[in-house]
Amino acid sequence: MKVTLFITCLVDLFHTNVGKSTVELLERLGCEVEFPDAQTCCGQPAYNSGYVKEAKEAMKHMIRTFEHAEYIVAPSGSCATMFKEYPQIFRGDREWEAKAKALAAKTYELTQFLVEVLKVENVGAKLQGKATYHTSCHMTRLLGVKEAPFKLLKHVEGLEMVPLPNAHTCCGFGGTFSVKMGDISEQMVDEKIQHIEETEADYLIAADCGCLMNIKGRIERAQKPIQVMHIAEVLNRHE
């Protein structure tokens, strides 16, 4: 199966290892992975800040870049959600609405793709220790992917999953919110970390680099002994 990777700008620039893990994992599961070099960012930073005009330029660029793809897979619930929202954003636009719909229809978040399309739950991953999972807001509430990460993590050999208290609560990232409303964001991420600590987990796992950057950045600042991992990195551990 041919998979077209929408790697997301955060992974491209800051979390290369998440990208590598995604490629290796998909290839191990028999996919042929391609990466259209023209891709940039889904436009969410501008869109969510109210700069719809600027965001639309980025969106059009992404629609053109992925026009040929059969399956688009992204290691981010939030960025995949943005693709899914393109049709609504271009509603009424005679040139772009249909194209946006076509793009949205073939877009999948990574774990969603594994479970719904490839129909695998056991990817043969191994990781020793105790982990808890942060359900990111856009992925669960807007994209509606709630179960897939848990189905996959359940089969990781050696990994004990423990539930995260108040899992439904946002970590305080929110894109530009994290800097515009830093004082509130700080309280939110601290409460999230407090709940993570209560689980006594060795690993915090999530499927969105935005949330991970926020939580990890705060954990590092506070020098807490919790390892933060993207789910692609966990699922790619198979030695």
């Binding site: 790697i7 992974v11 491209d12 620039l13 800051f14 979390h15 290369t16 990208g19 590598k20 490629v23 990466f35 070099d37 830093g182 964001s185 700080e186 991420v189 950057m213 926020n214 990890k216 950045g217 705060r218 590092e220 600042r221």
Partner: peptide, 16 residues
């Protein structure tokens, strides 16, 4: 409030 990751010297696209 938090640490920010340094941009990777080798971007994902370069690696790929």
């Amino acid at each position: 409030i938090r640490e920010f990751p340094a941009p990777e010297k080798e971007r994902f696209r370069d690696w790929f």
